[in-house]
């Protein structure tokens, strides 16, 4: 599974978009986005973002002053963006209503997830917005190579790659005429990613494997773990770790029996601010791993090879690279 996956990822990177166009955007601009063609006569103002990733990308491009609202927050805004964020109204911590978004008369609505704006969008469909003359932009990481109508959290038809994230940053920078900032941001993230991958490769680990445990509906129940083609799957693949979970779903539930018997070298658990399930708390996850009669016998638990990574670094966000670096640090501690 590992070698074809790697080959595929390599091919993907080879074909990737040119990383940076410098200079001003020429309007009218036509952008292809998830099956929709968007035309911009000028850089839009009063943008509304849904999903923290899209929000923070616009902040990273320095566009806080061109935003009219944000929604769908998972945790606190990154400290460096706090000043920008304080000026932008927050429409809702969760899904905003259609009218609250449209009421801002936005020049663009950018969403991190298709389940917010898409064929089965909680907020609305893209057509609903387009009929009112409001363009919508869906982060390519959530629609390219992913079918959001299959599986609980969508199913990836092609493995995720950070190129999709970089493409989203680049396109947003282009739309807002911030191509220099966009190119610089992508170059910075790409540089850190390459460094982490190089470090991991240099370790030259024989058959190192991992499992990513996001959360569970209840502690004893089958956990939500990362599938092959999602973002953690990409992290493991590029760093040379074998994902013990075979499913292609984004976050499938897999029994502890399967996880325990596959005995991964590393267990990654997610830290998050959310507290809906007991297992959202990473301390509870740790306590479970160490007390359950089966999981406590796992190699990774006995030798304390448990890595705690922020849940947001397991999603298509600018924080993803933090996760890659944390995972590389953990790999460095594995026995050769």
């Amino acid at each position: 599974m590992m070698r074809p996956g790697l080959a595929f990822a390599a091919a993907w990177m080879g074909l990737s978009l040119p990383g940076a166009w410098a200079g001003p955007t020429r309007y009218p601009l036509v952008v292809e986005n998830c099956g929709h063609r968007l035309t911009f006569e000028a850089a839009p103002g009063d943008a509304v973002t849904i999903g923290q990733s899209a929000t923070e990308i616009l902040y990273a491009l320095g566009l806080g002053n061109r935003m009219a609202g944000t929604a769908l927050w998972f945790n606190d805004v990154l400290p460096e963006f706090k000043a920008q964020n304080d000026r932008v109204p927050r429409l809702d911590n969760n899904a905003p209503s259609f009218e609250s978004v449209v009421g801002k008369r936005p020049g663009l609505v950018a969403t991190q997830f298709e389940w917010m704006i898409g064929p089965q969008g909680v907020v609305g469909t893209r057509e609903q917005f387009h009929e009112l003359g409001v363009p919508t932009y869906v982060m390519p990481a959530d629609c390219e190579g992913k079918n959001n109508l299959v599986g609980a959290d969508g199913t990836r038809t092609a493995p995720f790659s950070t190129e999709a994230l970089y493409k989203g940053i680049t396109q947003l920078a282009q739309i807002f005429d911030q191509q220099d900032q966009g190119a610089a941001l992508v170059a910075r993230l790409r540089g850190r990613e390459e460094a982490a991958v190089a470090r991991a490769k240099a370790l030259n680990l024989p058959d190192a494997s991992a499992v990513f445990w996001f959360s569970s509906a209840d502690l004893d129940l089958d956990p939500y773990v990362a599938g092959q083609k999602g973002i953690p799957g990409y992290m493991m693949r590029t760093l040379g770790l074998r994902n013990v979970v075979q499913s292609d779903e984004e976050w499938p539930t897999v029994g502890w029996e399967t996880v325990a018997r596959s005995n991964p070298s590393v267990i990654v658990i997610a830290r998050m601010d959310r507290r809906r399930f007991p297992a959202d708390d990473f301390e509870r996850k740790l306590a479970f791993l160490r007390s359950d009669p089966v999981t406590r016998e796992m190699e990774a638990v006995k030798r304390n090879r448990i890595v705690i990574i922020d849940a947001h670094a397991m999603q298509a966000t600018i924080r993803l690279v933090d996760g890659l670096e944390a995972l590389t640090d953990a790999m460095a501690k594995l026995p050769r």
Binding site: V122, A152, D153, D218, D220, L221, F277
Partner: peptide
């Protein structure tokens, strides 16, 4: 009122029955 898709899914799964937590 208060759920995101990921949580709703955890409950859905439970509503269809789940024996994995039996200890």
């Amino acid at each position: 009122r208060s759920a995101s898709a990921e949580q709703a899914r955890g409950i859905m799964f439970w509503l269809l029955g789940n024996l994995s937590g039996a200890r």
